[in-house]
Design a binder for these strands. Structure first.
Lengths: 249, 249
DNA sequence: CCCGGCGATGTGGTCGGACCTCACATCGGA
DNA sequence: TCCGATGTGAGGTCCGACCACATCGCCGGG
């Protein structure tokens, strides 16, 4: 046999419905902002039950392609939207927790993506984003800031830079990857010995990063953020915090 | 008010179920390979109807965390698995079709990811993967190969290199991004004027890439693949093929 | 004439029950 | 001993009903 046999995949109905709607999207017949017919109308048109249709809609909803609101009026019903971030974040978080990806893999991915983010941000980040980033950095420099609050601000800082890089895709990916390791970083920060000193060191890096981005020094910012990320992940593997997986801890 | 109000988000039951199962995964109580109780048992335990539970399971299934098989025996039932690739691919394809990402964004993402892939592959790609890649390259060099078959092999080549880089996460991301532009590339190749010449040029690049990877020249391979990708995407925007989105092009 | 209350309407959300298909497990007859 | 009919339990599908909610529009009081 020339190639391996494909399972004939005789489908479950909801899968067919999903495929049908996807094709409409690929064909450009469904665009962001469009409304789908009500479930009770669409189901018989597609020749399936409402349950099967709803399962397909649910899937589309969780991958950020659809939102559904009950009620009546212009906002009600199922609408096509573009909100990939939540879905991607959930996906990566779950798979990271399941051990699909090692910490090392995530580290490398972060390095690659954030280098690109910072380089992009150095080239064309809007001023207001940089000002907002400055506020975040200032927030992290507050004396006596808690680990949790710091982690929140740190996440928002990196995500903001990614978004301001002008590339929606790498921005989404960066956010998702950063979010997926967020609980791990939180635990690592909680376990650090001299927290104030660590915070100061991280803050210094953040300030320098922001300065480099402001003056358009893309490559330097990229190098520094790589060092920044590798340093933090180094404490992850060295520290007493084990991986999420079943091993030890 | 200190911070903006969060919508209270009183959730729909299936969302609660989803969250509940997710927490089990995050807590490490559910691992890859584990089986969930039958739907008819689990639903009353969680205090929801089977429909709500099924919607949550369906979501988990489409993000590659779960597979469900009917019947009886060791393979039957709902099992936790790790198969993020399909889900990620579908997600990116849909959002790309919806115009969440511009062609430029995808180009940059591909460049960043595949540079990393090829550098990784040059460092530690297993011999058998390289041999398989050589077969793919040879397949693409077949005289009179069709555009569609070429595109298939080309996709498999890039995905294979990504997988052999040893990084599961960037591999998955690379595959997903490459797959998301697959139909676009197909249309661009179909529209090319002198197809045999184009194929020859691309094949030469592929051969050189493979050689560089084989001899461990990571940076050189990265530079070449960047040039390779930018060249191909250049034909995309130049060619008569417009982007899927509604915007002008 | 204006305006506030209140029911009609239509939407998604949920639920319980019923039946189907499938694949394994079992047991009986050849 | 072997083989096929049958039982059983899993997910897959469908149906009908009800619920919660938001809007629309009527209607009566001011």
């Amino acid at each position: 046999m020339p190639v391996e046999w494909q399972p004939v995949q005789q489908s479950r109905t909801h899968e067919l419905v999903l495929r049908s709607i996807e094709e409409r999207v690929f064909a450009g017949e469904l665009r962001a902002g469009d409304r789908l017919p009500p479930e009770r109308e669409l189901a018989p048109v597609l020749g399936v039950s409402r349950s099967a249709l709803r399962e397909a809609l649910r899937v589309l909803e969780t991958i950020g392609v659809l939102v559904a609101q009950p009620g009546r009026g212009p906002d009600a019903g199922a609408r096509i939207v573009r909100n990939p971030d939540d879905a991607l974040g959930r996906l990566l978080r779950l798979h990271f927790a399941l051990g699909s990806y090692s910490l090392h893999d995530v580290l490398e991915a972060r390095v690659v993506l954030e280098r690109s983010s910072f380089e992009g941000a150095a080239c064309h980040a809007p001023i207001e984003d940089l000002d907002e980033a400055a506020e975040l950095v200032a927030g992290m420099a507050e004396p006596g800031i808690g680990v949790s609050a710091f982690n929140d601000l740190d996440t928002r800082f990196h995500v903001l830079i990614a978004r301001s890089s002008g590339n929606a895709l790498t921005s989404t990916l960066t956010s998702a990857v950063r979010e997926s390791v967020r609980p791990l970083i939180l635990r690592a920060l909680e376990a650090v010995e001299d927290w104030p000193a660590t915070a100061r060191a991280l803050n210094a890096e953040h300030r320098t990063l922001l300065t480099l981005v402001r003056e358009g020094s893309g490559p330097e910012a990229a190098d520094l953020v790589e060092w920044h990320i590798r340093g933090l992940h180094g404490t992850l593997v060295d520290g007493p915090v084990g991986p999420v997986g079943p091993s030890s801890s």
